[in-house]
Every structure is written in C-alpha cells, then in structure tokens.
C-alpha cells in the first residue's frame, strides 16, 4: 500500500505540473471572489474565510475525477486487485495520496492567500486548522465519489452531485470553526465536530469506495 502512495507521488512529480492544477485553481478562484466583491474593505475581512473555504472546496471537488480514472482505464486497477491487495487498501492509499497531492499544496498556500486578503493571524490560523481537520473528510468523500464514477471518464457534474450532499456539513462546520477559533481557540466545539465528521467520512466513504471499485472492475 505504501508502494502505491509513493508511486502516485512519483507520477505526480513527473506529470509536468498537471498535479498543480488544483492549487492554481484555488488561487484563481480566490482572486475572482475578491474582484467580484469589490476588492477592499471590511467586506474582505468578513467574507475572506468564506472565499478561501469555497476555493478549497472547489479545487478539491474538481480533482475528484482524476483519483481513479487513469488507473481504472489502463488496467492498473485490475492488476492491483489481482495481486490480492484489498480494494479498501487501494482506497486508503488513494485517500492518503489525495491529501498529500491535492489538499497539501492548497494548505501550504493558505496562509499566503489569507494574508493577501488581509485576514488577521488568528483567523488564518483558524482557517488552517479547520482545513486540516476537514481534510480527511474531503479526501474520503472524494475517494468515494471518484471510485463510484471512475468508469465514466471524469464524470463531470455527476461527481460533484454525488459528493456535494456530504460536503455541505463539512463546509458549514469548517467556516464556523474559523470564527470560533478566534474566540475559543482549538477547544471550540466546531473542531471536534469536524473531527467527528472526518472519522465518519472515512468509516463510510472508504469501504464504499472499495465496493465501488470492485463493482466498476466487474
């Protein structure tokens, strides 16, 4: 399983920057939001975290399609299953890879984008923490949606439709956590809620992904 994660990282590294599309979109989306909102003032301070969270959400949503489609369509997935590797382990490996390759770069840029928007340090810290707590949930539902839609090429809008219902609570708590952090620090209730959501997401999303992979290979 570790070999699979390492291979994915190596492939991303060699893909000539294709893996950075997510993070580029992240920056672009925030820029669009700022421009659309008028550019300056208290608006930005109030809505900054929301823009950033939305950008994070969409950047990850649009990467869901790539998680499995390559491996399914060139026969690698079948060969992996035939080596005895359980589909759940494959899903787990892809989950870890997704966090490192897609959410990771966004996470690194988060403080920079946050300060570009003029957010205070504590709000940026709250943002970073909420993104960190939510990342397992985002990745788990992404792996699930990607596995369900792997056979239909990139799945298009359907992948977003499938993952959106589960990501709504994550978004709600993620945003609430940013404001709560300023007042209560990491003891804020929202962080525990996010942690719970992440655990649930992994508990139901990853086995579902494994089952979906098996169904798609059939």
């Amino acid at each position: 399983m570790g070999a699979l994660i390492k291979r994915d990282i190596l492939l991303a590294w060699r893909s000539g920057g294709a893996w950075l599309l997510g993070v580029i979109f992240f920056v672009l989306f925030v820029t669009f939001c700022v421009i659309a909102a008028g550019g300056e003032g208290p608006q930005l301070e109030a809505f900054g975290p929301a823009y950033i969270w939305l950008a994070l959400l969409f950047a990850t949503l649009l990467s869901f399609g790539d998680i499995f489609s390559d491996d399914l369509n060139d026969g690698t997935l079948e060969q992996l299953v035939l080596t005895g590797l359980p589909p759940l382990a494959i899903a787990l490996a892809k989950w870890a890879g997704f966090i490192v390759l897609t959410i990771g770069p966004v996470f690194v840029l988060l403080p920079i984008v946050g300060s570009m928007l003029g957010l205070s340090v504590s709000r940026i810290a709250g943002l970073a923490l909420s993104a960190a707590f939510a990342a397992p949930a985002l990745a788990a539902y992404g792996v699930m949606a990607g596995a369900l839609m792997a056979k239909r090429g990139k799945g298009g809008f359907l992948i977003i439709l499938i993952s959106a219902p589960f990501l709504i609570p994550v978004l709600i708590f993620g945003l609430a956590a940013v404001d709560s952090y300023v007042r209560f620090g990491i003891l804020a209730f929202e962080f525990r809620a996010l942690a719970g959501l992440s655990l649930i997401a992994m508990a139901i999303g990853l086995p579902a992904a494994g089952a979906a992979l098996t169904a798609n290979i059939e």
Binding site: M144, L148, I162, G205, A208, A211, A212, A215, N216
Partner: peptide, 8 residues
Amino acid sequence: LASIFAMV
C-alpha cells in the same frame, strides 16, 4: 453503484 451510494 447506486446501492452503495444509497447506503452511504
């Protein structure tokens, strides 16, 4: 696939 999704 729909049954998996419904259960989740």
